[in-house]
């Protein structure tokens, strides 16, 4: 229905035709659709999120066995908010609670990767199947990556000396009424939307231009099956783009529509969210470069493997 209204507006009311008409039609259709989905999904996720906070997660991860801890940490990563600015207290706080660093890394990989903006955009642009694949394989990278780091005995590369606490943490309970939760979710959604709505517009505008003006052969030649290094290049390009996920994803949708392989697109989006340069810079204050390098290396390899796997089977 929305598609028909936009078609009517561009072709019958504005009387636009050809490349320009197609580009503008696409721009209006996509921008409003993505805005709507972002607001809805971020609200739902942030409402659910009022039941959990990082302190709650920490209390629940304490004293769990290795592999089970990794799985639990990765799952918690979906529902807890993550801001690279609080990576340090989180990391040290987990060590303080005697949570193994491998489990902490499972959480650190999963949390930014499964953030609500990425999930909302994926769902809106690619549908629920691709979203489910993204979340499922994202969890797998977080679990295996954290587990492998945990087996490498890298505790000595944590540069700050944290005294492990005695005993167990208290159960953290968050008591809020439905109204308070809704209000919190509303404020959170409003703040996030204010931060990213412009990136969406810019991303879609560039996407609309490509959609209307750049031929498919051109895209397919560089990012399609003909280029065996496409996944590798996509992952490296994704690293510095974390803060712009909202603008980058609409572009990826257009590129896949024009012949970019889905595995390459998935690997790129995972790299954008999971490997963030600002986060690495912040963690450098408390972690040895070798540990950060290992973390990026393992996650990077995992993502590249997923990219090639999907390109081969889909």
């Amino acid at each position: 229905m929305w598609k028909e209204s936009v078609d009517y507006l561009t072709y019958n009311i504005l009387h636009l035709e050809g490349h320009l008409g197609e580009a503008i039609n696409f721009f209006i259709y996509d921008t409003i659709k993505i805005w709507f989905l972002l607001i809805t999904i971020i609200f739902v996720v942030s409402y659910l999120r009022t039941h959990f906070n990082t302190e709650y997660v920490r209390a629940h991860l304490q004293g769990k066995s290795q592999l089970y801890g990794n799985v639990l940490a990765a799952l918690f990563g979906i529902i807890t908010p993550f801001c690279s600015c609080s990576a340090i207290p989180l990391f040290l706080g987990f060590i303080q609670a005697r949570i193994p660093i491998g489990v902490t890394f499972s959480f650190l990989i999963s949390s930014p990767m499964n953030n609500e903006i990425a999930i909302a955009l994926l769902f809106g642009l690619f549908g629920w199947k691709v979203t489910a694949i993204y979340i499922g394989f994202g969890l797998l990278v977080a679990i295996i990556g954290g587990y492998v780091i945990g087996r490498m005995n890298m505790e000595k590369y944590v540069l700050m000396d944290v005294k492990p606490m005695e005993g167990e943490l208290d159960e953290v309970k968050i008591k809020l009424t439905v109204k308070e939760r809704a209000k919190e979710a509303y404020i959170y959604t409003r703040d996030i939307f204010k931060d990213i709505y412009l990136y969406v517009v810019i991303g879609v505008a560039i996407g609309a231009f490509i959609h209307g003006f750049i031929p498919a052969d051109f895209i397919a030649k560089y990012s399609g099956a003909e280029n065996p290094f496409a996944v590798l290049v996509a992952v490296i390009m994704g690293i510095p783009m974390y803060s712009n996920a909202a603008g980058v994803m609409p572009l990826v949708e257009v590129l896949t529509g024009k012949g970019m392989l889905l595995g390459t697109a998935l690997a790129f989006m995972m790299a954008v969210t999971a490997l963030s340069l600002p986060e690495a810079m912040i963690l450098k204050k408390i972690l040895h470069v070798r540990l950060i390098g290992t973390f990026f290396g393992i996650v990077g390899l995992g993502i590249i493997a997923i990219g090639y796997l999907f390109n081969a089977i889909l």
Binding site: N53, G93, V162, L169
Partner: peptide
Amino acid sequence: DIMKIMEYQVVST
């Protein structure tokens, strides 16, 4: 001071 913050058992600032 991050160590003081930890003493309060706060992990999200």
